[in-house]
């Protein structure tokens, strides 16, 4: 089946099952999803509803049990780990709930990482400028353990945007932060997103955060539906 060239991300009948012992668990019911470039999409839902599983499939970290996923027209469901890695390197940025910075590298080196992987010779310059954008230029030489949670997430945001990804996946980006820091971080996230025109798919509990996205999808027991009511009433 041909993909729509206007879509950056497309899912058709994607399911995910896991087998534990003799039981097979349906984590995702057949899911269909289409995301246009520069769109911002929030996936909301209760814990265990399958939203993070979906995120990992969309980002090519995992493969679906059935169905098709196209990211930038590339059939992720057919790709092996190496090919999916290559897709991620070229098109994808990540922000995780637990920041996942490399503890043994400084803030600057963490931010440089994707640019260096892409063979960018100006990695350091660009990383410094990204750190400046997230307000951490003076903490460039600090190691993650020397930074607060909010600062670590800002470094993670800088790392996610440095390679100007086509699509950014954020998994509860404010989940580990207090509300004030969370607000600062989300502001920063949307600001950079707007500047770069990046597509954003974020998974969150936070209704306010979700409300800042153009679309809100609700995940409930493995089923994904477009939110028709205001977000606050759904969750």
């Amino acid at each position: 089946m041909l993909q729509d060239p206007d879509l950056i991300l497309q899912c058709r009948q994607v399911t995910k099952q896991v087998t534990t012992g003799e039981k097979t668990l349906e984590i995702l019911q057949p899911i269909n999803l289409q995301v246009r470039p520069s769109e911002t999409v929030a996936i909301i839902g209760a814990s265990g509803s399958g939203k993070t599983t979906l995120l990992s499939l969309l980002a090519g970290l995992d493969t679906p049990s059935q169905g098709e996923i196209y990211l930038k027209q590339q059939p992720l469901h057919k790709f092996d780990e190496e090919q999916r890695s290559a897709v991620r390197a070229k098109h994808v940025g990540f922000i995780f709930q637990s920041f996942l910075l490399i503890n043994s590298l400084t803030a600057l080196e963490n931010v440089m990482l994707p640019a260096e992987l892409a063979g960018d010779s100006n990695a350091q310059e660009r990383a410094l400028s990204m750190l400046a954008k997230v307000g951490l230029k003076d903490r460039a030489e600090h190691f993650p353990s020397q930074l607060s949670g909010g600062e670590q997430q800002r470094v993670a945001i800088a790392r996610a945007f440095i390679s100007s990804p086509d699509i950014l996946f954020a998994d509860e980006p404010t989940g580990n932060l207090d509300s004030k820091t969370g607000d600062t971080v989300s502001e920063l996230l949307f600001e950079l997103n707007q500047q770069q025109g990046t597509t954003l798919v974020l998974v969150t509990h936070d209704n306010d955060l979700a409300a800042q996205c153009q679309r809100q999808l609700v995940m409930h027991a493995g089923e994904l539906t477009e939110a028709v009511k205001p977000v606050a009433e759904v969750v």
Partner: peptide, 13 residues
Amino acid sequence: PMVAVYKSIGASA
């Protein structure tokens, strides 16, 4: 965790 992060941002095996 480092390997996982490297891989998630696209580092090959």
